[in-house]
Amino acid sequence: MSVDEQEFLATMSGYFKPRHNWREATGVGVTVAVIDSGIETDHPDIAGKTIESVEARVEGNRVVFDPSEAGDSAGHGTACAGIIARIAPDARFASIKVLGAGGLGDGQVFLAGLEYAIKKKYKVINLSLGTTKPQFFAPLHDMLDRAYQAGCIVVAAANNLPQPSFPSVFSSSLISVIKSEATDPLKFGFHYGEVIELTAPGVNVRTAWLDKGHRNLTGNSFACPHITGIVARFVEGYPNLTPFQVKSALYAIARENTPE
């Protein structure tokens, strides 16, 4: 590592230290939008934390969002919220249910969910969904640029299957996460120079599931909420952090976590 790089890292590592220790933070005052299958709001692990629940409905050629009491149709959204709540227990959730709306196809509904979160100015957005359809490449790219310009920090689950999946391949406007076998959520890693940059626990993660239960889960989409939880801790101390600053900070910490 060059002297310049060491200096840069030292600066970044110290970035949160003077006024705020993110390792002690709990996500106070931060709302995380979970664009997913819904959230089982009365699950004991996350009860009382969901401040808004909406679900997508297809109306003609457009997608509208109605207040929802449908809970979670698949278990995944609840699982993500459970992971985030474990890392940032004081964070609040906005559940944006995009699964099960049918009609226009997955890509468009999921795009509308992202737009909804940006319009509502939710600072941290957890995105475990993606699409491989090329027609959504440009609209998703535009939408993520909008999120970036609005200061929303989008954390997405990477897709490590052969075909590229959007938006996780967009490297500039969001944070993409891939699973590792690590168990300590604070010991996340960084693949410098690769499109999918962050690694976080994603193998046999025990978290909330439907019917007030729990499951052991493996997949990139369970690594993603670990980083979302960390970002919620950052934002507690620095509510106006930009996506660039968040990424730089994650990088600095990850380098500390995995010394060469």
């Binding site: 299958s37 149709s73 698949a74 278990g75 995944h76 995009v98 699964l99 099960g100 709306a101 049918g102 997955d106 999921f110 475990s128 969904l129 993606g130 699409t131 491989t132 689950a157 897709n159 299957l161 999946s165 046999n204 025990r206 599931w209 439907l210 019917d211 007030k212 239960g213 729990h214 499951r215 052991n216 889960l217 493996t218 997949g219 990139n220 989409s221 369970f222």
Partner: peptide, 29 residues
């Protein structure tokens, strides 16, 4: 299986592979 239901419904919509195992309680898939 209706749209968006269960693990299969999620995998179809998300494109994300995943493994889920029982944690010893009664919750259903």
């Amino acid at each position: 299986i209706p749209s968006g239901k269960g693990i299969a419904g999620f995998v179809l919509m998300s494109g994300q592979p995943m493994a889920v195992s029982d944690a010893g309680d009664d919750a259903t898939f």
